[in-house]
C-alpha cells in the first residue's frame, strides 16, 4: 500500500521535474517556428553573411551584428577575465575573513543591479569620457565592452571561486611544504588544477556578455554598419531585437525571431561546451 503511494508520488514529482525540459522545448520550438520561414525565404547564407539590414527594403543581413556581438564580447572578456581571476584568487587566497565576507556581498550586489542601471551609468559616465578623451561619438564598442566587462565579473568570479575552493587542501600544503612561495603555489599548482572550472567560468561569462541587451543598447550607438575601430558604434544581435521588436511586424518581426535563433544557437553551443568541460572532470 505504502509502496504504491510512494510510486505515485515519484511519478508526480517526475512530471513536475519535466517542466524544465518542456519549457526548453517550447521556447526552442516557438522561436524556430517564427524565425525559420524568413531564413528560408532569404537563404541561410544570405541571412548570416548579408551585409545590409534594411527591413523597409526587405533586406535582412545580420553579418554586421554578428561582428558587433563578437567584438564587443571579445573586448569584454579581454578586460573582464583577468580582473575576475584576480578577484577570485584574492577571495580564496589573500583576503582576511572579514574583507572576504564583505567582498562577496559587494559582488552579489554587482550581480543584482539591473542591467539598465549599468547602461545608464555607462551612458552618463563612460560614453562622454570616451568621446572627450579618445575621440569618436563615444557610443562605441569600447563603451559596450567596458560595461559588459563589469557585468560578467560576478559570473566568472563565483564559478572560479567555487572551483578553487573545491581543490583538496593537500595540493596547497604539499606545494608549500616543498618550499614554493604562496604565489608559485597559486600559479603552478592551484590554477592549473582548477583549470577546467575556470574555463567553464569564462565560457559562461562570455555567454552572459553575448546575451546582455539593455545595458548594451544604451552605450553601443546601435548603428548597423561594419565597425572600423573600437571607437565606432555598432549593433549586436541582442540589441537588434531589443530596439526593433517595439514596432516590427510581419516579415520584419520574423527576421527578429530569426536573429533570436542565431543568438540561441550561439548560447546553446557555448553552454554545451561549458557543461562538457565541467562534467569531464
Amino acid at each position: 500500500m505504502n509502496l504504491k503511494k510512494d510510486k505515485m508520488l515519484r511519478l508526480g514529482f517526475f512530471l513536475v521535474a519535466l517542466s524544465t525540459l518542456s519549457a526548453l522545448a517550447i521556447i526552442t520550438i516557438f522561436i524556430f517556428v517564427e524565425g525559420v520561414p524568413l531564413i528560408n525565404k532569404v537563404g541561410l547564407v544570405k541571412f548570416i553573411f548579408g551585409m545590409k539590414w534594411a527591413p523597409s527594403q526587405g533586406l535582412y543581413g545580420i553579418f554586421p551584428m554578428i561582428v558587433g556581438t563578437v567584438t564587443v564580447t571579445f573586448g569584454a572578456a579581454l578586460i573582464g577575465v583577468p580582473v575576475a581571476l584576480c578577484v577570485s584568487i584574492f577571495l580564496t587566497e589573500f583576503a582576511p575573513k572579514k574583507i572576504r565576507t564583505f567582498m562577496r556581498s559587494a559582488i552579489q550586489l554587482l550581480a543584482g543591479i539591473p542591467s539598465v542601471v549599468y547602461g545608464f551609468w555607462g551612458l552618463t559616465f563612460i560614453v562622454p569620457f570616451i568621446r572627450d578623451y579618445l575621440g569618436g561619438p563615444g557610443l562605441s564598442i569600447l563603451a559596450g565592452s567596458l560595461i559588459l566587462a563589469i557585468m560578467i565579473l560576478p559570473t566568472i568570479i563565483s564559478i572560479t571561486e567555487v572551483s578553487l575552493l573545491s581543490l583538496p587542501s593537500l595540493y596547497k600544503q604539499g606545494s608549500l611544504a616543498l618550499g614554493a612561495t604562496h604565489w608559485q603555489t597559486i600559479y603552478h599548482v592551484l590554477i592549473p588544477s582548477a583549470k577546467s572550472g575556470i574555463m567553464a567560468a569564462i565560457i559562461l561569462g562570455i555567454g552572459r556578455a553575448i546575451g546582455e541587451t539593455m545595458a548594451v543598447i544604451m552605450v553601443l550607438g546601435n548603428a548597423v554598419a561594419l565597425p572600423n575601430s573600437i571607437l565606432d558604434p555598432a549593433r549586436t544581435l541582442t540589441t537588434n531585437i531589443g530596439i526593433e521588436m517595439g514596432y516590427a511586424s510581419g516579415a520584419h518581426q520574423q527576421a527578429l525571431f530569426a536573429t533570436g535563433i542565431v543568438l540561441l544557437v550561439m548560447i546553446m553551443m557555448l553552454n554545451s561546451i561549458a557543461q562538457f568541460i565541467v562534467r569531464k572532470r
Binding site: 521535474a17 524544465t20 525540459l21 516557438f30 541587451t213 541582442t238 533570436g260 548560447i267 557543461q275
Partner: peptide, 22 residues
Amino acid sequence: IRFSAESLAAIPSIVYGLFGFI
C-alpha cells in the same frame, strides 16, 4: 533535466522576451 535547467539559465533575457511575446 539538469542540462535543461542549465540551458534555461543560459538563455538571454531578450530571447525570453521573444518567447513570452509569441
